[in-house]
């Protein structure tokens, strides 16, 4: 009995990991939070910064919402969730203002805008308000990680194509030592500006989604050997 409960829990967490990182990825599948996703991913550093901030917000809001889920009347749950989210985002914004001022300035309006990110309210409503604290927090972490991974991939691709560097400005995020992380891949006379501009974000995003779908199709084709199913169609009229 005990063992099966533990196993069930393990399965639940595994499922949460799979959902957050791949099957139900907020960036690639749910297509939520597209505004920051497309706006701040012109470099890996700012993408990582916003990704981490969003992840932290998701983790905290899911925990808090799950804690208060039994005390909030159903009718007013949405305003309450929004207030929880707004407070958490304010806290994170103030923390970034205090400790990562340069990154705070680089991300600008998009930190307070995490409040309006549909992923946050979506997970609060869909998962955290119906589950215990531990799975809810874990779900927030995984969804946040999935979102951050998409942000970072987009940021890295666009930065490499657009400016020929990787992780430029890492020192804004991690402190002065991180300047060594910046890789200069090539020095072009003409930058591929479109990759850094918003249309580039849409294009790269489209290719990412297409890539994910292609991988999914390949997995599905491998997993299911084609069944030879013979179906017969009745051609004669059956009188009853």
């Amino acid at each position: 009995m005990e063992a099966s409960v533990v196993e069930n829990k393990m399965n639940q967490y595994q499922e949460l990991v799979r959902q957050g990182l791949w099957k139900n990825n907020p960036g690639l599948v749910q297509l939520l939070g597209l505004c920051p996703l497309l706006a701040v991913t012109n470099s890996l550093a700012s993408a990582l910064g916003l990704g981490l901030a969003t992840m932290l917000v998701l983790l905290s809001t899911n925990t808090v919402v799950s804690l208060i889920r039994n005390y909030v009347p159903n009718e007013i749950r949405i305003p309450v969730f929004v207030m929880v989210i707004a407070s958490v985002v304010t806290v994170i914004e103030l923390l970034m203002h205090a400790f990562m001022y340069n990154l705070y300035q680089a991300l600008g309006i998009f930190i307070p805008l995490i409040v309006t990110n549909c992923i946050v309210i979506g997970r609060a409503e869909a998962f955290a308000s119906k589950n215990a604290v531990a799975p809810a927090a874990f779900d927030g972490l995984m969804m946040g990680t999935g979102f951050a991974l998409v942000l970072c991939t987009l940021g890295a691709v666009r930065e490499v194509i657009g400016s020929g560097t990787l992780f430029a400005g890492a020192d804004l995020l991690l402190g002065d030592w991180a300047k060594v992380l910046t890789i200069h891949l090539y020095q072009a006379d003409n930058q591929f500006l479109l990759a850094i501009l918003p249309p580039g974000a849409f294009l790269v995003m489209g290719f990412l989604i297409a890539g994910k779908n292609a991988v999914d199709a390949r997995i599905a084709a491998k997993a299911k050997p084609v069944e030879q199913k013979i179906s017969r169609a009745r051609v004669t009229h059956v009188s009853t």
Binding site: N190, Q191, F192, L193, L194, A195, L197, P199
Partner: peptide, 10 residues
Amino acid sequence: VLLLVSFPLP
């Protein structure tokens, strides 16, 4: 348009 936006100088 892609080229004009990306590489205005050349």
